[in-house]
């Protein structure tokens, strides 16, 4: 009888949970001041498609761990899908740089269009955040120009918060570059 109790106790002990590291969520928002009030009537440009590479299209932050090997963080995640937050982030950023309103959604077919594709966004092994992106500006009169962006930025310190900060700064840089191109 005693051995039976002992066995059951051991079996149950295996089920006991250990303290789990809490998941942290990060919000991607532009530091550009958004003024409240009426927006100008019609946007000259609107964001068309904002595509992100499949490996970034998931909640976890991505960190390179080996040559060609990445880790998708389980405890450090974006609060919103990047596809959605990036659209908002870029529209505001580009608008601020270009000095005009950029619509988040394509509204009228007469307006110019900006299509962005994010190819890489992660922390690499050298302690940097990397961003590689391509964009295409189709102006209202039918001119189409293609551009690309590839930058990295050192992390200010260890940890995911620093990675998020660096990625945010890179995205801000990208938004400015797009803004200059229109």
């Amino acid at each position: 009888m005693r051995t039976l109790i002992l066995a059951a106790a051991l079996l149950l002990a295996a089920c006991s949970s250990q303290p789990v590291e809490p998941t942290r969520y990060y919000l991607l928002r532009t530091p550009v001041a958004v003024t409240s009030g009426d927006q100008e009537s019609a946007a000259e440009y609107s964001l068309g498609s904002v595509e992100v590479a499949t490996y970034i299209d998931q909640p976890g932050l991505v960190q390179e761990t080996g040559s060609g090997e990445i880790h998708m963080a389980r405890h450090h995640q974006w609060a919103e899908p990047l596809r959605i937050s990036l659209r908002r982030f870029l529209a505001t950023g580009i608008g601020a740089e270009a000095g005009q309103t950029v619509a988040i959604m394509a509204t009228s077919p007469e307006a110019g269009r900006i299509d962005v594709s994010i190819d890489q966004l992660h922390g690499n092994r050298r302690g940097e955040a990397v961003l590689v992106a391509f964009w295409q500006v189709s102006s209202a009169n039918g001119n189409v120009t293609s551009h690309q962006f590839s930058e990295s930025r050192d992390l200010s310190r260890d940890g995911y918060t620093a990675l998020v900060e660096a990625e945010q700064a890179l995205l801000q840089q990208l938004a400015r570059r797009i803004g200059q191109s229109i």
């Binding site: 089920c15 949970s17 250990q18 789990v20 590291e21 960190q63 761990t65 880790h71 963080a73 389980r74 405890h75 450090h76 922390g123 050298r126 302690g127 940097e128 050192d154 992390l155 200010s156 310190r157 260890d158 940890g159 995911y160 620093a162 990675l163």
Partner: peptide, 15 residues
Amino acid sequence: MPVEIPPDPIPEASP
């Protein structure tokens, strides 16, 4: 069973 998720590798800033 409760899932034991291993901690994520911490991104390290370059020295």
